[in-house]
Computed example of a mutant assay.
Amino acid sequence: MAAAFEPDLLGCRVRLAAEEGHYCGTVHAVGARDGSVTLLGVTFGDGEQQQRLHGVQKFLRGDVRRIEVLERLVDDSLLLVQVALGYSDDSGGELLPRPDGYALLESAAELTEAVAFLRRQQTLGLAAEGVLLGRRGQLSLLTFAAAEFAFVVDVAACGGAAAVQQLRPLLEAADVQKVVHDCRGLSDLLAHQFGVGLTNVFDTQAAEVLLYHRQHGAMPAYVSSVAHTLVTRLGLLPRQVFFPHFRLERMREDQQVWLKRPLAEPLLEGAVKNVVYLRELRHVQMERLFSTFVRCVDVYLGAVRDADDEDASAAPYETHRVPLAVQAVLETPPTWPSRASPDYEQPGLVSNVLVGVDDGMQFTRNVWRSGRP
């Protein structure tokens, strides 16, 4: 029987029974509209098999067979404050510093000064806004976020093609990593319109695809929007990120809003919101992407150190062999059984989008979720 999620569950530590197993976590939100419950500090499994899941996890009413309240001692107001600051109880410690302000650049002189500063950074968040970004699209804004400050470049106001050429040394710099969420359109636009090759890119959307495959053992059919990824990976509140809504059949028309001047304040803030957290997102994703490698190194560290004297004495003669314990690390099954359904139109993929999502909506808050039809 489907569970009923009541508002008084907020702040409670609960245990959810789903088809694939048990989840424990603290209730962060209860959705009256979609019948959902969102948990923080989530673990999956029982006993020694428990595995910690990073970020927030959302469940629909139909996913949950039973819900049990473990304790009602958590102060939900405190919980929300922690999330608003970018912390969650499973974040693993302090996150990277975030920019404490931003500037809108509207002249070539301002851009020259900003490029000199950005060129000295090692890692930058980068995002682009415009109309149908690609070789036939129109570029409106390029936003860069360093640790201390963010810059929103009004490309047309700064000189159009000349502004992009000013940015070329930065965009092509091999010693400055650019963290982008879905670099496809921007890379195509820069290469075909301006002859600029975007270099040294960490694509957080590509990282999500790899992490999804590693976690579920299947290739997702749909990508994660930057806003939803920030909410799920960093535990941010929806109001801290920007959810763009574009109708697929009116994409060009809807995106014209990025070309209007003066730019509406909510759009300017939205352009900043989804880039200032990208460096943090990369940090979290890198930890997960390198988790298998780190476990392999741990095996190497203990392979001889923890062996008995007889095996340790033979170790110098066995250095040409891979430690057998590495095999167990590499053969570890997916960490969380998938609730997604096969995509029969594209064999080898799973349909990880909710059934009933509006076909005319490009992004939704739930687009990156392993849902069961």
Rank of each mutant, 00 (worst) to 15 (best):
V284P: 12
P342Q: 08
A315P: 15
K273V: 00
V326R: 12
S313I: 06
P342M: 09
Q255T: 09
G270Y: 13
Q255L: 07
T332I: 05
P337H: 00
V294F: 03
V294A: 10
A314Q: 08
K260M: 06
L259V: 09
S291G: 11
L289W: 00
A312R: 14
R261G: 04
H320D: 06
P316R: 09
Y344W: 15
A328N: 15
A314V: 06
T332Y: 01
A264L: 12
Q255M: 14
E331M: 10
A340K: 04
A314S: 03
S313D: 09
R282I: 00
R321K: 09
S291W: 00
L278G: 06
V326E: 07
D311E: 14
Y317G: 01
D306V: 13
R279D: 00
R305K: 15
W336S: 03
V294R: 08
V326N: 09
E310C: 03
P316G: 03
Y344E: 14
R288H: 01
A340Y: 03
N274F: 08
L259K: 15
L263T: 03
S338E: 06
P266A: 02
L263G: 04
P316C: 11
E253N: 05
E253T: 05
R295P: 06
C296N: 05
A271S: 15
E310A: 03
P316N: 09
L281V: 03
V299R: 11
R305C: 14
Q285Y: 00
Q256F: 07
P316I: 11
M286V: 05
D311G: 02
L267P: 08
V294G: 13
R339N: 12
E331T: 12
P333I: 08
W336Y: 02
L263S: 04
V294H: 09
P323L: 11
T332Q: 11
V299C: 07
P342K: 06
S291E: 12
V297S: 13
Y344A: 06
D309K: 01
A307S: 14
N274S: 06
D311S: 08
A303Y: 08
L301F: 09
P334A: 11
P342G: 04
V322Q: 10
V257S: 12
E310Y: 15
V275D: 07
Y317A: 07
F290P: 08
E310L: 07
C296R: 02
P334M: 06
C296F: 00
Q255W: 00
A315H: 05
F290H: 13
L281W: 10
D308E: 05
P337D: 04
L281S: 03
V304A: 14
A315N: 15
R261S: 02
Q327E: 13
H320G: 08
P266E: 01
W336P: 00
